[in-house]
Nucleic acid binder design. Structure first.
Length: 448
RNA sequence: GCCCGGGUGGUGUAGAGGCCUAUCAUUGAGCCCUGUCGAGGCUCGGACUCGGGUUCAAAUCCCGACCUGGGCGCCA
């Protein structure tokens, strides 16, 4: 029965165990040889002793044979290339000098898959490698402790999101199409694809579909799925394929969904903060306090002006403005009450404004380093929505499939989209977004 | 898309006209060593992205291509 390295302890002294994994390191001291085996859980030391074969004449035949076998084992273990996959069966020996307080004295040693040499990168962390080299050999990069932990935490984050939304809040998890017809929210560039005799596109966000589902009576829906952007941006915080947590809630306004968002983020933070592997990344995580600070767009413009960064009212906040604000605020915060012009057609204009449609009920969730999420209360009036689509220079005809549900009973609703990679990278203090995606897709990279 | 950097053994680097049949570490092959945990010691192998040009002489300077790091724009 195979056991994981960390399942075995010094208390298992004398037990017969089987472990399997990769040859992490070898240390040859001549008479004694250590093989460090790595599996999903951690490391286990396999120890072999070389017997000085000065076969005494009196020694029994059997004993000599046994020794010969052991010598063969010693040589086979000594010769196995690093990062080969091996299975080891042997006896546990309690040993204070060994890393986990125990070592395994092998009786059977099987090479399941021999690794070629020289390795494309070092898995022990002695010699670093550039991100590009690591991504080219991602399979091996994932064997390093740091990279492995990042993706275990990514899995933990997704689990925490699902638990929060499904178990605690009763959300319905949905799946919407990633292959779509031309009509989208506009703005970003799309990837065209060939769809039989027609042209189609990869979806930039589930926005329109999750809104359509507001007409279903499901009330609260969410989707965790890839989004595609054909922008030729080439930065440490952009990808052409990213993962978004998208939420939409019926009978709710922007205030309601902002509360859900901040509570979700805090829940994810506390889940990750309790994860033991976090220490191995050298990150200490502070769970943010609720509620997050709210800064109106007007206040943000003023704060920026005080900091010497002049922003024209109505402009979006650029990268340097984002950084400047982040420095001043220093924690997670919302920017609210955005000018309508900076937001998509589906953002609900603020009702009480009395100045036409100047401000909308939209918000961005900001980390001091970058934007994490954006959302709004949505327009649910068919007439207004149609008008706003046209005002953005888009054709209402292209949006027929989207507009129809608004004519047959559409509740007021609100929602947001949260970038999973950005949440992760800011939480884990990772510099490059590519580090938190197994196989990132960017301007240049299409493989692996 | 714009603006700056950079491409040297498998990996990470030093070298900035001649000192370079190119430094160091790690890895690989081999040898010595009975308690390592970044083991240690010795021997050996392995590289200047490609194509043009300047020069007596180019890893080093110039041009182009390709690849790549960062900042900004756009965006989540």
């Amino acid at each position: 029965m195979r056991k994981y390295a960390t399942e075995i302890t010094a208390n298992d002294d004398g037990e017969r165990v089987c472990v399997a994994g990769w040859v992490h390191e070898k240390r040859d001291l001549g008479g004694v040889f250590f093989l460090v085996l790595r599996d999903r859980s951690g490391l286990a030391q396999i120890t072999l002793h070389k017997h000085k074969g000065e076969g005494k004449a009196e020694q029994e035949q059997e004993q000599e044979q046994e020794q010969e076998q052991e010598q063969g084992l010693f040589e086979r273990v000594r010769k196995v290339p690093r990062e080969s996959v091996v299975a080891v069966e042997g006896r546990v020996k309690s040993e204070r000098k060994a890393p986990n307080g125990y070592e395994i004295i092998p009786e059977r040693f099987e090479v399941l898959s021999e690794a070629s040499q020289v390795l494309p990168l070092d898995t022990t962390g002695k010699v670093g490698a550039e991100l590009d080299t690591r991504l080219d050999a991602r399979f091996m990069d994932l064997r390093t402790e740091r990279t492995k932990e990042i993706f275990l935490i990514r899995s933990l984050v997704l689990k925490a999101v699902r638990e929060f939304l499904t178990a605690e809040r009763g959300f319905v998890e949905i799946n919407t199409p990633k292959i779509v017809s031309a009509a989208t929210e506009g703005g970003t560039a799309l990837f065209p694809i060939s769809y039989f005799e027609r042209e189609a596109f990869l979806n930039q966000s589930p926005q329109l579909y999750k809104q359509i589902l507001m007409a279903s009576g499901f009330d609260c829906v969410y989707e965790i799925a890839p989004i595609f952007r054909a922008e030729e941006h080439d930065t440490t915080k952009h990808l052409n394929e990213a993962t978004s947590v998208d939420v939409e809630v019926a009978f709710a306004d922007h205030e309601v969904v902002m509360k859900i968002l901040e509570e979700l983020v805090a829940a994810v933070y506390s889940e990750v903060a309790n994860y033991p592997g976090l220490e191995r990344l050298g990150v200490s995580l502070n769970v943010p306090e609720l509620p997050f600070r709210r800064v109106t767009y007007d206040e943000a413009v003023e704060l920026l002006s005080e900091a010497g960064e002049e922003i024209e009212w109505g402009d979006d906040l650029g990268t340097s403005a984002e950084h400047r604000l982040g420095e001043q605020i220093g924690e997670l915060y919302f920017v609210t009450d955005w000018p309508c012009a900076t937001k998509p057609f589906y953002a609900q204009p603020a009702a009480a404004a009395g100045e036409g449609e100047r401000i909308c009920n939209a918000f961005d969730l900001m980390h001091p380093r970058m934007e994490l999420a954006s959302g709004s209360q949505r327009v649910h009036s068919y007439e207004l929505l149609k008008r706003k689509i046209e005002e953005k220079g888009l054709s209402a005809d292209d949006f027929e499939f989207y507009l129809e549900p608004f004519r047959y009973g559409m509740p007021p609703h609100a929602g947001w989209g949260l970038g999973v990679e950005r949440l992760l990278m800011t939480m884990l203090e990772v510099e490059n977004i590519r580090e938190v995606v197994l196989f990132p897709r960017d301007r240049r990279r299409l493989a692996p």
